[in-house]
């Protein structure tokens, strides 16, 4: 997350002081990514060093104000015009966990999936309730009043819901795939290729739990994670 560009975007609307930047940043994003005032000052100091902001005197209350420079505006325009890089995705603990769970003796992959799914959907329930509140609050404003903070916060909540949704759907997909592959994997796992005994989990699920080692070779999650990252 770019605090640097976020602060530049706020300064483009006019000079501001540090604490004000922090408050406005948080009301945009609903305190989703809380900033401490120290972070704000450090970031502003770096922006100043890089010539993107300059000190702009004090307000009546004696707060030190900062203003964006022409270079700062150029930097901001570049930021908005450049897509966020997705070519080197951040390491995802869940993807690694499932990749490791497939074929691990004694691990019930479906239980791992279900426990994550519950957790993810619970987070979605919470985000959705915040969204319902945000929509309700927006309804109480006078018709036609466009409150950028309201809308920004709704967009941030939607983003969190969509991301969690993607994860939940991916988990559904993994489970379906594991169920479909389980009988085939069991049939193709020969003693000389299977490094571990099949089906150790001991649950009474008829399919999917405790996949034999061979299943990892049949694709499963491994294919998805084989993307070289060098």
């Amino acid at each position: 997350m770019s605090i640097r560009h976020g602060l530049l975007a706020l300064l483009e609307r006019g000079p501001r002081y540090g604490y004000q930047l922090r408050t406005e940043f948080e009301s945009r994003t609903g305190s989703t990514w809380p900033l401490n005032v120290g972070q704000v000052y450090t970031t502003v100091a770096r922006l100043e060093r890089d010539g993107l902001v300059v000190p702009a005197g004090e307000d009546e209350a004696g707060h030190a104000l900062y203003a964006i420079t022409e270079d700062g505006r150029d930097e901001l325009r570049r930021w908005f015009a450049t897509p966020v890089d997705r070519t080197s995705p951040p390491r995802d603990e869940l993807a690694i966990k499932l990749a490791m769970a497939v074929g691990s003796p004694g691990v019930d992959v479906r239980a791992v999936i279900q426990s994550q799914r519950s957790h993810t959907i619970r987070a979605m329930q919470d985000y959705t309730r915040l969204k319902a509140q945000a929509l309700e609050e927006a309804m109480t404003r006078e018709p036609g009043v466009f409150d950028a903070d309201d809308i920004a916060w709704q967009l941030v909540l939607d983003q969190m819901i969509f991301q969690a949704e993607a994860e939940a759907r991916w988990l559904d997909h993994c489970e379906t795939r594991l169920i479909r592959l389980a009988p085939r994997a069991a049939a193709s796992a020969r003693p000389d290729t299977a490094a571990a005994p099949a089906g150790e989990s001991g649950t009474d699920d008829q399919a999917g739990s405790g996949l034999p080692q061979g299943s990892a070779r049949n694709g499963g999650l491994r294919g998805a994670l084989r993307r070289p990252r060098r």
Binding site: T120, I121, M124, Q125, Y127, T128, A132, I161, F162, A164, E165, A168, R169, D172
Partner: peptide, 8 residues
Amino acid sequence: HEPRFAAW
């Protein structure tokens, strides 16, 4: 089957 709607 949609998590986004179940979340309500």
